[in-house]
């Protein structure tokens, strides 16, 4: 009995010593997982995931507090890449979270009263203008998050789907392959 305890204690001590030494010798800082998740998110800062921006969502994912399928602008593709990063099975986007075509907000120049509410709402400062002056949206900087729509007291902001032009046109997936019913 005593010998059994001694043997196990001995093994435990030796291994404990080795592991203790190794934990000092091979100490590393935790890898910046949040940054990596944040790099995959589309940065629209739209808050559709229920978090106030992409970074908070990334933090929530890294802590395991949020699911990976809550980001509609990232689409199913984004979910897939998150799943790959985190080593989990990809899943379809949550209910009612179908990705929309990319769009930019456009302010109706005639209705805008210059209240600046949309400017405060815009997460990326893509709306310019001063109080009581007409506001306008810098299209290249607009992420299409739609956060400026609700605050507008006169409903003068609308979303305009981005049309493709010769420069951004993409080749389509070839459809020569025989149609598959399955």
């Amino acid at each position: 009995m005593i010998s059994a305890i001694l043997v196990m204690a001995g093994i435990g001590l030796v291994l404990g010593g080795v592991l203790g030494w190794a934990s000092i010798r091979y100490r590393v800082e935790d890898d910046p997982l949040v940054e990596k998740i944040d790099a995959i998110l589309p940065q629209t800062q739209c808050g559709q995931c229920g978090f106030p921006g992409c970074k908070p969502y990334a933090e929530a994912i890294s802590k395991g507090e949020a699911d990976i399928n809550l980001c509609p602008p990232g689409g199913n593709d984004g979910v897939k890449r998150l799943a790959e990063l985190l080593g989990v099975e990809p899943k379809p986007l949550g209910a009612g979270m179908e990705p929309k075509p990319k769009a930019v907000a456009v302010i109706d120049e005639n209705t805008c009263i210059g209240c600046t509410l949309c400017i405060q709402a815009c997460p990326v400062d893509a709306i310019v203008g001063a109080a009581k002056q007409m506001h306008s949206i810098i299209a290249e900087q607009c992420t299409g998050c739609e956060l400026c729509l609700p605050p507008c007291p006169v409903d003068c902001i609308s979303m305009q789907v981005i049309r493709e032009d010769v420069a951004t046109w993409k080749w389509r997936y070839p459809v020569h392959m025989m149609k598959r019913a399955a």
Binding site: Q43, Q45, C54, D125, Q141, T168, K170, W171, R172
Partner: peptide, 25 residues
């Protein structure tokens, strides 16, 4: 190949846009 290339280009474009949005945010 043309399809794959234009998809990859679009992704790179999206990435650039996302980076810009992140900086601005």
């Amino acid at each position: 190949f043309r399809y794959a290339k234009s998809e990859i280009w679009e992704r790179e474009r999206d990435k650039r846009e996302a980076d810009q949005a992140r900086r601005r945010h």
